[in-house]
Computed example of a mutant assay.
Amino acid sequence: MTVAVQTPLAPAAVLPRVRSITAVRHLARGALLSLAALLLGITAQLLLLSGAQEHSAQQATFDELRNQLALGTAPVAQTDQQGNLLTPGSPLALIKVPSLGLQQVVLEGTDSAVLTGGPGHRRDTPLPGQAGTSVLMGRAAAYGGPFGRLAELTEGDRITVTTGQGKATYEVLDVRRAGDPAPAPVAAGEGRLVLVTATGPRFMPGGLLRVDADLVSAAFPTPAAVVRPGTLPEAEQPLARPAGVPWPLVLWLQALLAVAVAAVWAWHRWGRHQTWIVFAPVVAALGLQVATRTTELLPNLL
């Protein structure tokens, strides 16, 4: 005689609880995957990719500046030919330091985003080559670290800067750190160039290094200033960070978290091979975007 064996059914109340636990696990794994992608992306961005991005930006801005110099439309003041303030990141000048093998396009502005593309001109100072003290700021390590070797300069080294007004030549006066005495102010009609970067271990800025260089060629005419000293936003000061809510970073983080949760779900539903093929490139691309926006929140001279 056949005896029917009945399998006891799980209580109905257990199913929602199991689903709830599974959903929590998906969210937790997605969050961990997002965190791992973020940390890996930031490390790769600072150590490897930022230099390539800066090099690419320099190539593009060099071509733009060379074309403007040929056409005679390169900036010669804080404003363009229509009287509008120069857009942050606009190519402004070409600086060369032969003793360091340095050649960089100088951009307008000194906030963190601008300095990812190369050295920047402090907007409340005259342009290089003009009478007065012109200040250029550049990163020491990240994004190619264009000013990372300024400490190697010695008195008498030459620096040339080419702008829409011509080529100016400077001679290094000194290299100073915090506490070192500043040189005497320039006399009326004379010019000086101050190069500013960060000191301390790589990617751990601890102070400022300044290189003072006096203009040894004839000073170019200095147009009337529009952005005056003391009016710059805090984000354009040395070692400053961007102000306000970083909305682009917030949006990219949300996208990364959503894709990470979907990847964890797909891992259980589709299988690991299909998930790797579909989601790995997407997570990597989003991780790079998040890393880029995150590094822009770090000090601008890093």
Rank of each mutant, 00 (worst) to 15 (best):
P11Y: 13
A12L: 12
A12D: 04
A13P: 00
A13H: 10
A13D: 10
A13F: 04
A13G: 06
A13N: 10
V14D: 15
V14M: 13
V14P: 10
L15Q: 12
L15V: 02
L15A: 10
L15H: 08
L15T: 09
P16K: 12
P16S: 09
R17T: 01
R17E: 14
R17Q: 09
R17N: 09
V18E: 14
V18P: 14
V18Y: 14
R19D: 15
R19E: 15
R19S: 04
R19K: 09
S20L: 09
S20W: 15
I21D: 15
I21F: 15
I21H: 13
I21T: 11
T22R: 14
A23G: 04
A23Q: 14
R25E: 00
R25Y: 10
R25Q: 11
H26Y: 06
H26Q: 05
A28N: 06
A28D: 01
R29T: 08
R29Y: 07
R29M: 04
R29I: 05
R29F: 05
G30M: 02
G30F: 03
A31K: 13
A31I: 10
A31Y: 14
L32M: 09
L32I: 13
L32A: 10
L32F: 08
L33N: 12
L33F: 13
L33C: 12
S34K: 06
S34E: 00
L35D: 05
L35M: 12
L35P: 13
L35W: 11
L35V: 12
A36C: 05
A36P: 12
A36V: 12
A36N: 05
A37I: 10
L38T: 09
L38A: 05
L38F: 08
L40Y: 03
L40E: 00
L40G: 05
G41H: 12
G41M: 10
G41S: 04
G41I: 07
T43D: 02
T43Y: 03
T43H: 08
T43K: 15
A44Y: 13
A44E: 13
Q45V: 02
L47F: 07
L47T: 05
L47Y: 09
L47H: 07
L48W: 12
L48R: 01
L49V: 06
L49W: 15
S50Q: 10
S50A: 03
S50K: 06
S50G: 02
G51R: 02
G51T: 07
G51P: 02
G51L: 14
G51A: 07
A52H: 05
A52V: 08
A52Q: 09
E54P: 00
E54Q: 03
H55Q: 12
H55E: 15
S56H: 02
S56Y: 04
S56R: 01
A57Y: 04
A57E: 06
Q58H: 01
Q59I: 04
Q59H: 04
A60L: 11
A60Y: 02
A60I: 06
T61I: 00
T61G: 00
F62I: 03
